[in-house]
Write a protein that binds this DNA or RNA. Structure first.
Lengths: 138, 138
DNA sequence: GTAACTGCAAAATATTTGCATCCTT
DNA sequence: AAGGATGCAAATATTTTGCAGTTAC
């Protein structure tokens, strides 16, 4: 797994700009998902709100981060594993959202199980989110 | 399963108002999920935008509808099955989102499988969304 | 009649767009 | 130098809140 912001950006043919490296470093440090609002908060004195939107969009398009499905109308992103390619995500792992600390954790080793669908449905991508209490909050 | 708006509202001790019945009837007819925007569109000439927000919130609180996790920053709701109670949802079925027609379908008969989590995690609720092509669009 | 619901106005938030300027390669 | 990225201003869109008037029971 790429561990420096520079490596990740280069691999995706993106120019090395300050804001991209800063936002990317937040993800590398986070070891979990970040909400759009968190990112804005942590970069508030660095760059424009608009830059945050555009940077995150670029990252998603390039398969650097992926969106996590939520029911609370928030937008959560997490780093993709290396086998994500531009426009083609392979993040078939389970996400865990802690009801206590509200952190979202990528359970990279827990694969989304395959379910049998009724006749006629052709599945392509399956997402799974488990909510409960994480180890730190117990 | 309750099939009239009146029944559903009465069972949940909610007063029978025009807007509640109208919005509820949209769900009964839909046989799938509705986006907030859809509902607004279909009621645009009936009542206020604010009433839509408040009505949907009331329905969620009473377990009449539930939110469906999405990655696209939209808000989708679907009718709950009968065993949902106020503040305590039991919608452990899989949702299917069609990439072609963009409809969301509740697969009531497909139960979300149980996954084994790493040590320390206590799961409570599991949600699963499958994306692909539905039978109608194939 | 009373409590709850709705409409309206307005505030607060969130997101998108255009364009001039600056930075990376 | 050229293309892309950013900042700023402003337009849009979304969601929330307060309050007065209306409706359901």
């Amino acid at each position: 797994m790429s561990t420096t912001t520079e490596e990740i950006l280069k691999k995706n043919h993106l120019s090395l700009t300050v804001s991209r490296q800063k936002i990317l470093s937040l993800f590398l440090r986070a070891n979990g998902a970040l909400e759009h609002a968190d990112i804005e908060k942590q970069t508030r004195e660095g760059f424009d709100r608009v830059t945050v939107y555009r940077t995150l969009q670029t990252f998603v398009e390039n398969g650097i981060i992926h969106l996590i499905p939520t029911t609370d109308n928030s937008i959560k992103y997490a780093l993709c594993k290396d086998d994500c390619e531009a426009g083609h995500h392979h993040d078939e792992h389970v996400h865990f959202i802690c009801d206590a600390c509200n952190k979202t954790i990528c359970l990279d080793d827990v694969v989304v199980p395959v379910v049998k669908l009724p006749k006629g449905f052709s599945p392509k991508i399956a997402e799974m989110v488990v909510k409960g209490i994480c180890g730190d909050c117990k």
